[in-house]
Amino acid sequence: MKSYGWKRLLGLVPLFLGITILSFAVIHLAPGGPSDAKAAFNPKMTAQARDRLREIYGLDRPLLVQYADWVRRLARLDFGRSFVDGRDVREKIAEAIPVTLLINALSLGLIFLVGIPLGVAGAVHEGRPLDRVITAGTLAAFSMPAFWLALLLISVFGVHLRALPVSGVHSLAYEEMTWAEKWVDVARHLLLPVLVSSLTGLAGISRFARGSMLDALRQNYIRTARAKGIPERRVLYRHALGNALLPIITLMGLSVPGLLGGSVIFETIFSIPGMGRLFFNSVFTRDYPVIMGVLVLGAFLTLLGNLLADLGTAAADPRTKTGLLS
């Protein structure tokens, strides 16, 4: 078990290098540079001023040198400074990441908490009306364009009923609130974003759980258990479910990048200052250090998620000793 963990970790090194190369390439092969975006069509920005910017950012050096320099600093966990406002990229990411992680963790939790029971219920009632309703419902939630759904929810709960805040993470008076009030305030603000981001993810997990549960139910040991006269409840929830849940752990790790990517959209609609917004803004201002920082960090988080999921599965299932899980 321990050696398996080490092997996995070692395998991550070339993967991580690949990630840095790709992150670097995507952005540096593109036309348009940060100095152009910064000039933002200001009639007073002279050509010399723009050249000056290029020099300051070190963009006049060969690509390979820039890459080597960047990776060297990355190894020391130094992401560089933003081209736009000169702040440390770590600082910018550190500001943006908590709220995105919180929302993603909450929605991931919600997705699994709701999705697995739905999928299991569907499997147990395979082909019956309940199964159909669940399938149709989760699929419908998946098929809605997220921003459409979000706007509808905002106009109903925020504008017409005035029951929930329209956007943002905190009320204006947040800083003056007591500890408990702060909790309630953040919860009220995050309700709709978490709902929207988890609704769209529900279909995947519940379908997966359903399939996995169905597979488990077809296994011989279930037939044996049933034949032995063990109560159906016990068969379903002890024997079958335990085995069905195992592959779902892996799925958890794999859903990280999807959720992270989707965050751009709902962070825009709900005015949430998270990673998605940070990335979007930096793409449009060609803020290379931030773009690369976010990409690398996002990939790193996914790697971490996968690793944890793998180790979790390995720990839970002695059969997995080697090999890739997919």
Partner: peptide, 20 residues
């Protein structure tokens, strides 16, 4: 003087309608 950052113009209008 508070300047909130609201990236989507549609949301800005909804925030105005709710007097936020």
């Amino acid at each position: 003087y508070v300047c909130r950052i609201v990236p989507d113009p549609a949301t800005i209008f909804l925030e105005l309608l709710t007097e936020n």
